[in-house]
């Protein structure tokens, strides 16, 4: 269509989550219209991020420094660790600004049917972080799915020996949600967790 460079670019863009071949073509076309103003800065930013950004050795977060800025921040509460599935979940909690403590990214959940076992996740480092005795609370902020709940129960069992206080995020009616449009499972869980 427009040379192998453009085709290659479209193919690479189409692999980005949320983009298909059609939207990748549109994005590439838009960038090519402003190569100096948009394309080259994007390419430089991507190259710089690819070189600099690494997983934090402590929590699994993505950052250009290791340990990451959250783990290294002395103002944060180092006695509290919030366990999340992915870095996207960590970013979501950080945006809300309600968690003053540290994080731990598992990298997924246990999956009975998908074949993901404890050794496939970042669980051993979490248990090691709890060992010294400085941590007082572990907050399990995993998804409200069968796999997420199974992972929460598994971690609760494994952390029991450490004596650390293990809590889970609540489940129920979302803010702005009307009861009549909620699914039966959410309603049942919300009623059971009433207070």
């Amino acid at each position: 269509m427009g040379g192998p460079e453009i085709e290659r670019l479209i193919q690479l863009f189409a692999k980005v989550p949320g983009l298909g071949p059609r939207s990748a073509r549109r994005a590439v076309l838009k960038l090519l219209q402003y190569p100096e103003a948009r394309m080259l800065p994007l390419a430089q930013a991507m190259a710089a991020a690819a070189r600099a950004v690494k997983h934090c050795a402590l929590c699994g977060n993505l950052d250009s420094v290791n340990p990451c800025a959250i783990c290294a921040d002395p103002k944060r509460d180092h006695t509290m660790i919030c366990v999340v599935e992915t870095v996207a979940d960590l970013w979501a909690l950080e945006r809300s600004g309600v968690h003053p403590g540290l994080y731990h990214v598992l990298g997924g959940t246990l999956s009975a049917l998908g074949g993901t076992g404890p050794d496939d996740l970042n669980i051993r480092p979490l248990l090691a972080r709890v060992q010294p005795g400085d941590v007082q609370e572990i907050i399990l902020a995993l998804s409200a799915t069968v796999d997420g709940a199974a992972t929460s129960h598994f971690l609760t069992d494994r952390l029991a020996a450490s004596g650390v206080h293990v809590t889970r995020v609540a489940q129920g009616v979302p803010i702005g949600g009307a009861l009549d449009v909620l699914d039966d499972g959410t309603l049942a869980t919300a009623l059971r967790a009433r207070r």
């Binding site: 409200a144 799915t145 069968v146 709940a149 039966d184 499972g185 049942a188 869980t189 967790a193």
Partner: peptide, 8 residues
Amino acid sequence: PAAALAMA
């Protein structure tokens, strides 16, 4: 919703 009821 058996899954939601068994999750806890």
